[in-house]
Design a protein around this nucleic acid. Structure first.
Lengths: 234, 234
DNA sequence: CGGCTTCTTGAAGATATTCAAACCCAGTGG
DNA sequence: CCACTGGGTTTGAATATCTTCAAGAAGCCG
């Protein structure tokens, strides 16, 4: 029984150790003995676009590491208005706040087919207690999230709509110069504008040949032009 | 000589232990032996309104705990536009990022006469290494800053100008129902509007009797009315 | 009292919202 | 197969909100 448990633990740990993106994730700095402290299963879960990972206010029992895909963190105002406060890309961590015994602060929704690792909060709490190697990574994660939050504010909530959109696109371009966009409603919730105005603004960038629609919601970007729109030089 | 140093250290530590707002600050959870690990002076420094604590990009050697007053954290866009991303009140910590070996991310400016404790980053780094009691507080601080950043975005960058201003005022009211406001330029940089529009919006709330000017830049607030303006119910 | 900055106000123009209607497209069911 | 439906998107036109530029008022300091 005990032996079986240990084997199960080991199997899970081995999975983490062999993780293809381990240098990107929360457990990047862990050493072999640390993994033995993981005594709860870390599940790999897939979500389709639109599915909810967790909801604001839920009593969180786990945090998530993003293996692939894209997640939006949504925050609601008392009056029901909503705002997307951050986007999480591969390697990012969602739900860090549960390690402090807090409920989730946002609603996390997949924007694309997304694959995550679900890490029970006890795992992080135990590792945090027993190995110092996790501390650094946790701090880095908090720091990274805060930096992104501040940048999000200055870049996506400052200036005219075309500037904001251009800056967002620059954040989203893949190495191959393409971008996969999402619904105009989400776009509006990120830029702090209405759905209709988001639609018009996309159309405007198209007319200026800053972006070109390859297929529905996939665009080829002219980065130079986007940068100059983003900085209001043109 | 060595003895003298130890006494100096002790004197500084004693100051921290006797700190009047210790339950609010970063060192809240430290115990008596922890303070002996502090081997660099923690200075108490006063700033007048308008003075700069540190500038974005500076190679930070210290972080700050706010004893009294008010500090703005300013972030600049490449094109020179600026945005105030957060306000720090008593008990808050500024410059946490230096504990990760990073330069300061914002420019920190006192908005009122302000008193801070300057903590050399080595002190935090050493305490962080040698006593687990600081970890929790550090995480809490990161978390708190992130929460504030997210709220700032959803509350102060969403909706019409009067709503945003009303929400900001609610954040700023003292227990006695009064608010000390700052320059219209700063107000604009917080709400994402122009200086002129900030001025007009303040005038509008005055006309609606949601605020009443007691003396230059000091106002009495009608909280109920502000709340209903902030939520667009009226 | 200048001279300076900051705040306020006005008016014209730019930008964004609102509401409504048309459109597109994928799915459904006759 | 095609009409019908329902969701998201686009577009139009009227209106609201914000910015810009400019000028006047108020406050502050030497």
């Amino acid at each position: 029984m005990k032996r079986g448990q240990i084997e199960a633990v080991w199997r899970e740990s081995a999975q983490c150790q062999d993780c293809g993106i381990r240098d990107l994730v929360l457990f990047a700095d862990l050493k072999e003995p640390d993994f033995r402290l993981i005594h709860l299963p870390i599940d790999e879960i897939d979500f389709e676009a639109g599915q909810v990972l967790y909801s604001a206010g839920d009593d969180g029992q786990a945090l998530f590491t993003l293996r692939s895909g894209l997640i939006k963190l949504v925050q609601y105002l008392p009056d029901g208005a909503q705002r997307i406060v951050r986007l999480l890309k591969r390697g990012a961590t969602a739900g860090l706040e549960v390690t402090l015994g807090q409920p989730y602060e946002h609603t996390a929704v997949a924007l694309q087919p997304t694959s995550v690792c679900r890490i029970p909060r006890q795992v992080v709490e135990r590792l945090s207690r027993e190995t110092p190697r996790l501390h650094g990574q946790l701090m880095q994660r908090w720091h990274e999230a805060l930096r992104q939050a501040d940048d999000w504010l200055t870049e996506l909530s400052t200036g005219k709509a075309p500037q904001r959109l251009a800056r967002l696109l620059i954040h989203l371009v893949e190495p191959d110069g393409t971008v996969t966009l999402f619904s105009r409603e989400d776009l509006g919730a990120m830029l702090g504008i209405t759905t209709e105005h988001a639609s018009r603004t996309v159309a405007e960038l198209k007319r200026q040949d800053a972006i070109f629609e390859l297929s529905p919601n996939r665009y080829r970007c002219d980065i130079d032009q986007l940068e100059c729109i983003g900085s209001a030089d043109c």
